[in-house]
Design a protein around this nucleic acid. Structure first.
Lengths: 119, 119
DNA sequence: ACAATAGTTCGACACTTCTCGAACTCTGGA
DNA sequence: TCCAGAGTTCGAGAAGTGTCGAACTATTGT
């Protein structure tokens, strides 16, 4: 078996993360419900004006309590690099990582170099 | 839990199929190594001038024998709708379903309507 | 300091997925 | 008709995944 590159693994991991219906809905919701990044007056790229974990939960499951299950899915998406989460007081604010989404889209469109495949 | 739509499930299934490194490599290989579809004079979408399962196997695993494992992965991709396979004599010729790939890319780029998310 | 809120982590369980080898099917050629 | 070639299907076993409730952590308000 020829080597599977790091990049390939990272991309596969992102696809895997999106391969669960619950997580796909979370991702969809986040993409539609938050402007990805905000830049404050000092020019810093601050994270996401987005929904809290609780609001995501409310939208996805209908419950206002963040279940361990939802927390688990949020973590999967975060570890895969598809979403961001930042503490804001008692809550955690979620945002989507547009770069990652773009990378996947580019991969699918054939824009990215096909890994391990010389032609 | 609000309903998960059919379309969402289909898309999640495609992402899931791409979420395995071996399958991602098969998909990559197919995309780079075959013209996706040919349309004959009657307008029928005929399949793919592409590699055989054995050739895919050779490229991915280095072995010229199609293993049950590779066959399993090809089937997963086929069932998810990402690739096509057509018998040609003793062999099976593989091709990629560009429409499916495009649908996923559109979904990631935010082109598709975010399912179950009213804003 | 205490309680409440918002989420996370942990352990357990059922379920699925990946991999392997063996047996099988389907097709073309001798 | 029998054989070989190209894949597929099946059964089993190991590993991974998703879900749940309970216990835990961090932060804010009193």
């Amino acid at each position: 078996m020829t080597e599977t590159s790091d990049r390939e693994c990272r991309i596969a991991a992102m696809f895997r993360a999106l391969g669960d219906p619950t997580r796909l809905r979370i991702f969809s919701f986040l993409r539609s419900c938050c402007c990805p990044v905000t830049v404050d007056e000092s020019g810093d790229v601050r994270t996401v004006q987005g929904p809290t974990a609780g609001e995501v939960c409310c939208s996805i499951t209908g419950s206002d309590k963040v279940s361990s299950t939802l927390s688990f899915h949020l973590k999967e998406l975060r570890v895969a690099g598809l979403i961001t989460m930042e503490r804001r007081g008692k809550t955690r604010v979620c945002g989507i990582n547009t770069e990652a989404a773009d990378e996947l889209a580019a991969f699918l469109s054939g824009g990215a170099t096909p890994p391990g495949c010389d032609d």
